[in-house]
Every structure is written in structure tokens, then in C-alpha cells.
């Protein structure tokens, strides 16, 4: 369980990083290392070059620009979990972060690392899908913005070219009184979820839902938004949400199976977690947050 030999690079600037990625082949970017280092040691990945981006200060910024929260790819999960800016505007992210690994791993793990590694059961990519995050990709060929709907290119495969890197993630918060909910089931606290769900709701003063977003994760190779169920929610009274219908919609999604968890049990959990997430969002709708 020792990594295969590789060349180690530690760029200090975005330009240096872009240059390295252009000139090197079979390179991997090292962010917080909470997944990659284990994969290196298991020799599941054997890059010729490891490019450590921990020294690039520009990647670790967290700021609000206009109506958008911009999270640098190297912002630590621990930082996000305790950032007042996130708590105020993206409370569902805070709730999800409490389920991401353990304090020790969150202190190193980054949002960008998680969103590039793309474990199907990971909370943060699912929340990015839920929040319609925009991924800012950079490289020698220049910047481009990838919407969350295009980010998930395949199993553990982000929409990044070999010479590109994820620079930041931009999220436009929902209105101040939106309802949010997060639920997941893992056998042990801190494990990757077997199945999880997230929900966001916005309603007018009369309690009619004006906007909804729903996501499932852990079920398929990438987080699943439920556009039909979202559309069905819009226009209904928040008090009259058809939870049974939502759970059925969640259960009807594509489900994986493995040696320990059947597709049928995943489907069962999908219904339960979706119900719980939407229920929590319903309860928080139009409430003042502390």
C-alpha cells in the first residue's frame, strides 16, 4: 500500500498550474487528498505526475460577488461548515457538510476535490447539483463556465479536459425564506451515504410553491435531479404536498446494486430520504432563520 513512483509538482500560481497541465501527460491534481492519496496508495491510480495545488492561494478564497457566492476549489470542507456566509445563504450546504466524513477529513478535504472526484454517494456534488452551481474551469486555453447539469460526465468523471482544472464553484442563493431539507442514510456516521436526498422550496406569501429543486444521490452513477417532480410541486400549496407521490418518484429513479446493498433497498431509502428532505424543507419554508 505504497504509491507507485510519480513526479511531484507544487505550483504557486494559477498560471504555473495551467502551464504544468499543458506540458505534462498522465498528471493528477492533488487537492485535500482524502480520496486521492488512498487511491494512490492502493495503486488504483498511477499518475506519472502529481500536481499539488495546496500552495495556490487564489484557489482558496470564499467570497460574495453581487448575488453569487463564489467558493474557491481549495476551500476546505471545515471552512465551509463554519463560514457565516454559507450558513446565511446556503444552509442546505451546511447541513450536508455535517455528514461529510469526520472532522479530521473535513479539515483537509476540499469542495473542489470532492466535486472532481465525484463519488456517486458524495454529498457535496449532490448539493451543487441541487443548487444549480456553476463550475468555473480554467486552463491554458482560458476560462469557461460549466453548469451543474453538464458537470457530471460519467461515473467519477467530471467535465474537465486533461489540461484544465476546477477554479471555483459559483452558487446563487435562493431567497432568504426558502425552505431546505437534507436527509441521508449511512450505516455509520461519516460514511458515504447509501442514499441521500436534498430539497429546496420557495413559496409566495400565500404558501403556494413558486420554485422547487430536488436531488437524490447514491442511487445512480451521479446525483439525480427530479425535474418532473419539481415541476409538479410548483403551483401547489406547500401545506398540500403529495409526499407519497414524491417518494414514488424517488423510488422510480435508476438504482445501482452492489454486494451489500440491493437496488430494491436503495429504492426504498430513496423514497424515505426524499420524503424526509422535502418534509424538512416544508417545515422551514417562509420561516425566519436565526
Amino acid at each position: 500500500m505504497k504509491a507507485a513512483p510519480f513526479h511531484f509538482h507544487q505550483p504557486a500560481t494559477l498560471a504555473e498550474l495551467a502551464g504544468l497541465l499543458t506540458s505534462l501527460s498522465n498528471a493528477r491534481i492533488l487537492a485535500g487528498g482524502q480520496s486521492l492519496v488512498a487511491m494512490l496508495n492502493l495503486r488504483l491510480v498511477t499518475p506519472d505526475h502529481l500536481v499539488d495545488i495546496n500552495k495556490i492561494a487564489d484557489l482558496a478564497t470564499l467570497r460574495q460577488t453581487g448575488g453569487t457566492i463564489e467558493i474557491g476549489a481549495m476551500v476546505r470542507q471545515h471552512t465551509l461548515l463554519h463560514a457565516p456566509l454559507i450558513a446565511q445563504h446556503l444552509p442546505v450546504l451546511v447541513e450536508a457538510l455535517g455528514h461529510v466524513g469526520h472532522m479530521q477529513t473535513r479539515s483537509r478535504g476540499t469542495i473542489g476535490g470532492s466535486c472532481c472526484h465525484l463519488d456517486p454517494s458524495a454529498e457535496l456534488p449532490a448539493m451543487c447539483a441541487l443548487l444549480d452551481a456553476a463550475f468555473t474551469v480554467n486552463g491554458a486555453r482560458g476560462r469557461r463556465i460549466v453548469p451543474a447539469s453538464d458537470w457530471f460526465a460519467g461515473l467519477m468523471q467530471a467535465a474537465l479536459a486533461e489540461d484544465e482544472f476546477l477554479e471555483s464553484i459559483s452558487i446563487t442563493p435562493w431567497s432568504g425564506k426558502h425552505g431546505y431539507g437534507f436527509a441521508e442514510y449511512a450505516r455509520r456516521h461519516g460514511d458515504y451515504a447509501i442514499v441521500g436526498a436534498g430539497a429546496l422550496l420557495e413559496a409566495d406569501g400565500e404558501g403556494t410553491i413558486k420554485r422547487a429543486a430536488l436531488v437524490l444521490f447514491g442511487c445512480d452513477t451521479a446525483p439525480q435531479r427530479l425535474p418532473q417532480a419539481e415541476a409538479a410541486l410548483v403551483g401547489t400549496r406547500a401545506a398540500n404536498i403529495d409526499f407519497a407521490g414524491l417518494a414514488a418518484a424517488a423510488r422510480a429513479q435508476e438504482m445501482m446494486s452492489d454486494a451489500q446493498v440491493t437496488a430494491a433497498y436503495r429504492a426504498r431509502l430513496a423514497g424515505i430520504m426524499m420524503h424526509r428532505a422535502v418534509k424538512a424543507a416544508q417545515g422551514r419554508l417562509n420561516k425566519e432563520r436565526p
Binding site: L42, R188, A259
Partner: peptide, 16 residues
């Protein structure tokens, strides 16, 4: 063997 990491072979942990 199908359970050869601690992600697959579940040891009881403090939280549980």
C-alpha cells in the same frame, strides 16, 4: 474477497 477496505468492511465506530 469483496470487503477489503474499511469502506466495505464496517467496523463499529464511536458514533454508533
Amino acid at each position: 474477497p469483496l470487503t477489503t477496505t474499511y469502506g466495505e468492511y464496517l467496523l463499529p465506530m464511536a458514533c454508533e
